[in-house]
Design a protein around this nucleic acid. Sequence first.
DNA 1: TTGCAAAACTTGTATATACAAATTATAATC
DNA 2: GATTATAATTTGTATATACAAGTTTTGCAA
Lengths: 237, 237
Amino acid sequence: MKNKYVEIYHKLVKDIHKGDYRAGDTLPSEHDLCARFETSRETIRKALNLLSQNGYIQKVRGKGSVVLDRDKFEFPVSGLTSFKELSERLGQSFQTHVHELTLVKEAEVCRQLNCREGSHLWKVVRSREIGGERIILDRDFLRQDLVHDLTKEIAQTSLYQYIENELGLDISFAKKEIVVEPVTAEDEEFLDLNGHDQVVVIRSYVYLGDTTALQFTESRHRPDKFQFVDFARRTKV
Amino acid sequence: MKNKYVEIYHKLVKDIHKGDYRAGDTLPSEHDLCARFETSRETIRKALNLLSQNGYIQKVRGKGSVVLDRDKFEFPVSGLTSFKELSERLGQSFQTHVHELTLVKEAEVCRQLNCREGSHLWKVVRSREIGGERIILDRDFLRQDLVHDLTKEIAQTSLYQYIENELGLDISFAKKEIVVEPVTAEDEEFLDLNGHDQVVVIRSYVYLGDTTALQFTESRHRPDKFQFVDFARRTKV
DNA sequence: TTGCAAAACTTGTATATACAAATTATAATC
DNA sequence: GATTATAATTTGTATATACAAGTTTTGCAA
């Protein structure tokens, strides 16, 4: 909360969620916002660009910044969101079971994370229980040279929170892939599959701000409980 | 191609694809790019921000703009990409079958597109054949007050191209949802399901630059041929 | 009242400057 | 040679100005 334009962004997001501005309304003009926040127009425009990128507003030249209806996609699986953040938004009772927490050497994963083939990786296998059913199986591989110590308690609460807040690592971006695959023996062991013979698999490579790879994650979801919601802007060719 | 910073963005994208800059390299500094393109630093920074948003580079303070490895996610299903653009990238033989092209009144869809309940909608049902198999079923609803005329030929080639280039409508953003659902009778009729009893469903609402809703699309994919690849930046809380 | 033109307003682009913060290269010192 | 301090390089933030382009409002004239 040190940058002025990020602060203004958060303030405006809060105002929209509060209902001060409703879908279809226009925000105050950039000029007015300059006066209100006592700052320059470029700073206001940086804040508005953040709102635009995250699907809160659509800027229309000559008109203003029109507030969009985000209700329908208030499922933030889109960005880089942790299971804990997701569950909290859902408001449902959830539970994490840690099935494995070991140091391994996986040459293939090492190669994809750009670390030495002989180096150690944390392997974490967790199932996620929501509403009494185990519907998500997470398999994580983390570079041990970046995350030295890891406990069952941390794996049970929030990996991301530990990595970002405790270790101070700067998680910055991820590449992810979503596909559908047949269930494995491990899926059958740790999930309540309810007769399903396929799972939705989200594979992610997570990177730090200095572009070093940190983590590979495979998140396996029971199909009937899976939903991915996204806001996408058309990239003009 | 009128804006300077968009032009610079395209030039740099082309250079990266050409191999002038490889993954791990740093681009020339902002100062150097100013000199090369004979422009101001802010203009260069706008171009670099586009590269960053689209996953081409990661900016590191004090260091420079590091080129990322986009090879693994060169599947542009992520943005707002049409089937035609997708197929061309895949380089495979593809074919579109138009099964239905009618004017209908669907109160439910009208409501979600924010148009009068009585107004007409184009309903387009198409199957997509790739490599000899019909694996995608697209069901489109378009507002007829915005797209007056529609022919089978247009539906067979590219709706987006017609809408953007011929009609001059400015497609700007979309909300989309990805879920897995059981197959319907229509799926069985128009798709080569190959024994699958579930399909991946992508529902999208497409909007114009002035925030008016244009289109609702339901794209149903055979699970084994479905892949969604995404680049996501962590939105700092 | 109606219609048109002008003005005012709003966002978009381009440029310039100053300083902060992080990294890297250089030089000096031990 | 190794370490440390300094300088140079590079990106980040904040501010300011000027003009372009699209929309809305105003006001004048018929």
